[in-house]
């Protein structure tokens, strides 16, 4: 029981933190994710980039066990998410959408709830919850219901929920969306420290500057397919990431001829 949380297994650090093979999902006629292969190295700060509707959320949902893929496999730290979900879910933390939390609990109640569900001991929960709330600047709001939090505070409490059991991998869907610069800097800081301590972060975003600043590995997703993946330097090839992104995704730049009536 005591090794269920808080243990940093360092033995097989070289195996990928996330390993996706042929992951596929279709919604009715629309193919959302078309057979993705992806390796997220252990200890990396991994950015999943893509325009809106590229399939980022779908991919991450299938990685954390929220959405069953139509085909393919997802492994998290060597555990098959869909064959052995309990073991996989124990090792990872994920940032739920703010609508996907029990938001009529206060911040500290929510942390206690998650901790108890994860089978953690109550003194550990109390200690970590207090510390997380303090570091994330939610100490004063600990007794306010999450539903009354601002967008940034909701992201932060979600992050606290994901980190509470000290997972080796955190999966974050748009962690910086709707977050003010101060909170964003704080979240960035915590994640960087977490990676420095041996953890792996994979997050989705379409904010290039952020990804460029944070990530050591990226993958660019468009129309349900991986268009480019690898260490950020390799993908970028000496150019600005934004240009690479637009080129890879196949966007267009205005020529000036259209919208002449504007």
């Amino acid at each position: 029981m005591s090794r269920r949380y808080g243990d940093r297994v360092t033995g097989h650090a070289r195996e990928p933190a996330v390993l996706l093979r042929g992951l596929t999902k279709r919604f009715d006629e629309k193919i959302a994710v078309a057979g993705i292969d992806l390796d997220v190295p252990s200890g990396s700060f991994f950015g999943l980039l893509g325009p809106n509707g590229a399939g980022k959320t779908t991919t991450l949902s299938m990685t954390v066990g929220l959405l069953r893929p139509d085909a393919g496999t997802a492994h998290v730290l060597g555990r098959n998410v869909w064959a052995d979900p309990v073991a996989a879910k124990r090792l990872l933390g994920a940032l739920p959408d703010s609508g996907r939390m029990f938001d009529r609990l206060t911040g500290s109640e929510l942390l206690a709830y998650i901790g108890l569900l994860r089978g953690m001991a109550r003194d550990v929960i109390d200690l970590r919850a207090a510390e997380l709330l303090d570091v994330l600047g939610l100490g004063d709001a600990g007794h306010k219901m999450v539903i009354d939090y601002s967008a940034g505070m909701k992201k932060k409490i979600g992050l606290a929920c994901a980190l509470l059991h000290s997972p080796r991998l955190v999966v974050l869907d748009e962690p910086f969306e709707g977050v003010d610069p101060v909170s964003a800097a704080l979240i960035r800081d915590i994640l960087q420290r977490y990676v420095a301590g041996g953890g792996t972060v994979i997050f989705s975003s379409h904010v290039m500057e952020l990804v460029e600043k944070l990530c050591d590995h990226i993958a660019i997703l468009a129309a349900g397919e991986i268009r480019a993946a690898g260490p950020i330097e390799t993908v970028r090839g000496g150019r600005v990431l934004e240009d690479v992104f637009v080129e890879v995704v196949g966007g267009r730049t205005a020529t000036g001829a259209e919208l002449s009536w504007l």
């Binding site: 206060t106 109390d126 919850a129 007794h143 306010k144 219901m145 009354d148």
Partner: peptide, 17 residues
Amino acid sequence: PRDRKVSGSGGAVDALI
């Protein structure tokens, strides 16, 4: 009223249960 404060003291677990 938007600001619904919930009273509670002590540890997180005691606050929940």
